[in-house]
Design a protein around this nucleic acid. Structure first.
Lengths: 131, 131
DNA sequence: CGGTTATATGCGGTTGAAGATATATTCCGT
DNA sequence: ACGGAATATATCTTCAACCGCATATAACCG
């Protein structure tokens, strides 16, 4: 079964997450890396995720949109910045899968590098500045 | 990153399973259903998986081959039958992800139906018959 | 109202995973 | 060695996810 997660309207949020759609989301490099980053840091904005992954901004933004449409992440606008976080109402088994994955790959590339790049990011928009 | 799991030679088995390759494997309907069935039953042959899922035999066989090439399952030939099982040497976090998924979707379609179809399969090759 | 920064989306081209069908392979019984 | 059953693979076509780039939107500030 092919999975179409591009053109899901924002109106259909909170749809049930099926295993196939979840794993299709996790199968993509950038999407998985963003989720792993969001697991470790409560909230991150697009520029932080862009810096951490080293990917192009439209690339990150597009994949975040897919995660949002699937209901895996939630976003919060604060001024110019849009803060993403793991969706607070995920099914328990989805959270379990994410956490087991994070625990299993925490010490591998590129996940460690992403964390490193994030921590050394200059002019990082702190929560105090843009909340 | 695109994932190519078709043409991996059998010589390169036991390669490290990356999150991306794992989730790409789990993202496919038939592959996930086969894995969920194999989690509940120690060993199943192709005809059992074919019957349980209702898919065409070449279809099931091809996807089992992909799972084998990724190192997610192991196969054992016994006469005409080839028995598949979850690979006994999977990394702990991979097993954890599989188990959490199974626990989360056990009561959903099509997984319950697959189990039901398997249990009512006639002339099922028992382990005693073809081991 | 312009200018700047942060983020989102539209579009065309590429590519490779997936499906269907036919066919090959492997093994057993006789 | 032959036929049949279980499984694997080859080939072709299709189609949608992906990428890069350009551009649009949104919010803040003077």
């Amino acid at each position: 079964m092919r999975l179409k997660i591009y053109s899901v309207s924002r109106m259909f949020l909170r749809m049930t997450i099926t295993p196939s759609t979840l794993f299709a989301a996790l199968a993509h490099d950038i999407r998985l890396r963003c989720l792993m980053l969001l697991l470790r840091h409560d909230e991150l904005c697009v520029c932080e995720l862009t810096h951490a992954t080293g990917a192009a901004q439209p690339h990150v933004s597009r994949h975040l949109a897919q995660l949002r449409e699937l209901g895996l992440v939630a976003d919060r606008r604060a001024g110019l910045w849009v803060h993403y976080r793991i969706h607070p109402e995920l099914p328990a088994w989805v959270v379990a899968v994410l956490r087991e994955t994070a625990a299993g790959v925490a010490d591998q590339a590129p996940f460690t590098d992403d964390d490193q790049a994030l921590s050394t990011m200059p002019n990082r928009p702190s929560a105090a500045r843009c909340a």
